[in-house]
Simulated assay, not measured.
Amino acid sequence: MLKTGLLFLLLHCHIVGLNAQQPAVSNGELRRFPDFPSSFVGARNIDVWLPSGYSSKKKYAVLYMHDGQMLFDSTVTWNKQEWGVDEAMTKLLNEKKIKDCIVVGVWNTGTMRHADYFPQKPFLSLTPEQQDSIYKATRGNGYTLFASAVQSDAYLKFLVSELKPFIDKTFSVKTDRANTFIAGSSMGGLISMYAICEYPNVFGGAACLSTHWPGIFATENNPIPATFIRYLKNNLPNPSSHKIYFDYGTAGLDSLYKPFQLQADEVMKAKGYTSINWLSKEFTGEDHSENAWRKRLNLPLIFLLKK
């Protein structure tokens, strides 16, 4: 267990409700849809970023991003860090390196984050004893990871059958798979991987940064990474119509990820993925933080959204 990563995820799981102030963006426009309702999961804020010059006369691709409260404004985040999404998108748009695109920041709901983001079908493939052990896992100081049973299938239903139709109706966007993408980090990386596998007709690309393959905080006698790898073998979408980006650092919590990412990479190769539709990158010295993800965000954005 790594204390730095442990502290990060502990705090990362409790940020909803601490500061619901609308982020300020330095580029483009942000529109807040507070407490967006769902019949599948808890209500949450949705922040939609529109590039400068957004016009209903044009059609835009859509990038859905998890942990939406961490994307735009470090002055309102728990750790005073951010992804810098508006800056990165604006720079790449101005350089004409990516297609016109809006970003939908989907907030997590604090204590339900692990239950929302933990891939459900791999979890259910474990034995009842293994599932029970995972539910008892803690993130330190006696805090359990799961506030409820895993419900990522319900979370994805919310994204696909409730949020996406709203975005498609409200904004001038392209609604097809080739222009619909999903991205996140850590547990958000896992759920992005799961989303493109579960809904290959909806999402044409996924970016999975610092993917939290262990699922919990221990790696010894942990069956979770192996079941994720088996799931990938059986459920990866067609490489001819999908793009997937993976990465990891080597410091802090990210130092756990390399062996599991290398296993995932072998699966990707075996399933016919090449450099055309798949990237897997290591960032030496980078840790598990928004500052780290911000520094390399341009890479997955260009990979998914290049013209």
Rank of each mutant, 00 (worst) to 15 (best):
Y117C: 04
R230C: 03
S240W: 05
L297T: 07
F203L: 00
I216S: 04
D67M: 00
S192A: 13
I167D: 00
T175G: 12
A61T: 07
K169Q: 14
S38W: 09
Y64Q: 05
P237T: 04
K57H: 07
Y194V: 01
D247H: 00
L11E: 12
W213K: 12
Q130R: 06
D287V: 07
F72C: 15
A183K: 02
P51W: 04
M70Y: 03
I216F: 03
G53D: 00
K174L: 13
Y143L: 14
H66A: 05
A264Y: 06
D287H: 04
G142P: 08
P259I: 11
V103L: 09
S255C: 01
S185E: 00
Y64R: 01
G184D: 03
P300K: 04
L253I: 11
L256N: 14
K271L: 12
V202E: 07
H114M: 08
F203N: 01
R296I: 08
L6K: 14
P200E: 09
I229E: 14
N277I: 12
S186N: 05
N94F: 08
H114K: 08
P239S: 05
K157W: 10
I191N: 00
F303T: 11
H212Q: 04
P37F: 05
K91A: 01
Q81R: 10
D67S: 04
F40R: 13
D116L: 11
S172C: 11
N27G: 01
L304V: 05
N235D: 04
I134M: 07
G28H: 08
P259F: 06
H12K: 09
F72D: 02
T211K: 02
F171R: 02
M268V: 08
L30Q: 08
V41Y: 10
L92C: 02
F166L: 06
L93V: 01
Q120D: 15
V62M: 02
N79D: 09
G28F: 15
H242S: 13
N79R: 02
K121N: 06
M112V: 08
K281I: 14
D254G: 08
D265N: 14
I224P: 04
G17A: 11
L7F: 04
G105L: 01
K3Y: 15
T227A: 13
G17E: 15
K306V: 00
L301V: 05
F171K: 00
V202Y: 10
K59A: 08
E282C: 05
T109W: 01
F260E: 11
Q21A: 03
Y231E: 03
T227L: 01
D247S: 04
A226D: 12
Y60V: 09
E220S: 12
K59Q: 10
V150G: 02
S280Q: 10
V173Q: 05
D47W: 05
S26D: 10
N45G: 10
I134D: 09
Y64P: 02
T284I: 12
W213G: 07
K295P: 06
S74E: 15
E95K: 05
A154V: 03
V41T: 11
E266I: 04
V48W: 02
R113W: 02
D176A: 00
W78F: 12
A43T: 13
V267Q: 06
N235H: 13
H14R: 13
L126V: 12
N235Y: 10
Q130A: 13
Y248H: 13
K295H: 15
C208L: 09
Q81C: 11
V62P: 03
